[in-house]
């Protein structure tokens, strides 16, 4: 039988010394402009938690994309640049090449990285730039109102595929993460998610590696983070995460795709 437990009051528990989770200081006080339930906020938070834990705020330079996260620099309390659509890996290259001791990362959506910026993505990966790419995949163009993205699944509806993506007409959903893993310039390639506590813990570890590996100068770290776009998918946030588990993740399975060789 369970022993009789002392039942603490809220006043007992809510004390400074008992605080076990707080918003990282490296997120600004600005309220995210993202839709309720959108995973961008979690991804932002994890990156800033890692920068805080590694104590590299004074060496971190981030590149925001064009897309929903175009204003990422409003939330991350580090030096940032805002790129033209798809060109973030080129900016990152320019920064890292001229300042090799910095921790440089791009934060890009699927339209930005896998459609208009495909060339910049592939070549930054292939050159083995010592930067991190955080690739947020929600299978849709969020900011412009839910149009088809290169990552939109077959038969998935969007505002430009209102009857579902027809592969014959629109081509196949692009697994660009698997593609860049084939390039010798990538050092670490992984696909993560942030919709469940366990996934968030793993995603943070992956983000941390992507920062730490920059010191090794062995190539580019590419971390895909799958998130829901509940507005674009036209679902409630919790339902969107469930739909993601059932439909999106089977096509884009989570886990490491390329890990550094152990010697």
């Amino acid at each position: 039988m369970a022993e009789q437990q002392q039942q603490l009051t809220s006043e007992d528990i809510i004390q400074e010394e008992n605080l076990v989770f707080d918003r990282t200081q490296l997120l600004t006080d600005n309220v995210f402009h993202y839709c309720p339930g959108c995973g961008h906020g979690v991804a932002h938070r994890l990156i800033m938690e890692v920068v805080e834990e590694l104590e590299v705020q004074d060496k971190a330079i981030g590149i925001a994309p064009v897309g929903c996260s175009v204003l990422a620099y409003n939330y991350m309390d580090i030096d940032m640049q805002e790129a033209a659509h798809g060109r973030a890996p080129a900016l990152a290259t320019g920064i890292k090449r001229t300042m090799p001791d910095k921790y440089v990362f791009t934060y890009q959506g699927d339209g930005d990285l896998a459609a208009i910026g495909t060339a910049e993505t592939i070549h930054a990966c292939n050159r083995g730039e010592n930067v991190a790419i955080f690739f947020i995949n929600n299978g849709i163009y969020g900011m412009t109102g839910g149009q088809m993205a290169p990552t939109t699944l077959e038969k998935m509806k969007s505002s430009t595929t209102p009857y579902g993506r027809n592969i014959k007409q629109m081509g196949n959903p692009l697994k660009i993460t698997e593609l860049v893993a084939e390039l010798p310039g990538t050092y670490y390639v992984t696909r993560q998610a942030v919709h469940k506590p366990g996934a968030v813990r793993k995603a943070k570890k992956a983000i941390k590696k992507a920062f730490e590996y920059q010191k090794l100068e062995k190539g580019l770290s590419f971390v895909e983070i799958v998130i829901n776009c509940n507005s674009g998918w036209k679902m409630e946030p919790v339902d969107a995460n469930k739909w993601m588990d059932e439909n999106f993740l089977p096509y884009y399975p989570l886990g490491d795709i390329k890990v550094p060789e152990k010697k």
């Binding site: 022993e3 528990i13 004390q15 008992n18 605080l19 076990v20 995210f32 993202y34 339930g37 959108c38």
Partner: peptide, 23 residues
């Protein structure tokens, strides 16, 4: 105080406190 809720919170608006209660 397992922090699971805070981990998935998209707006980073949850603080978590935890204390050991003794029998």
């Amino acid at each position: 105080g397992c922090v699971n809720c805070a981990l998935v919170c998209p707006d980073a608006v949850i603080q978590v406190y935890r204390k050991k209660a003794t029998a």
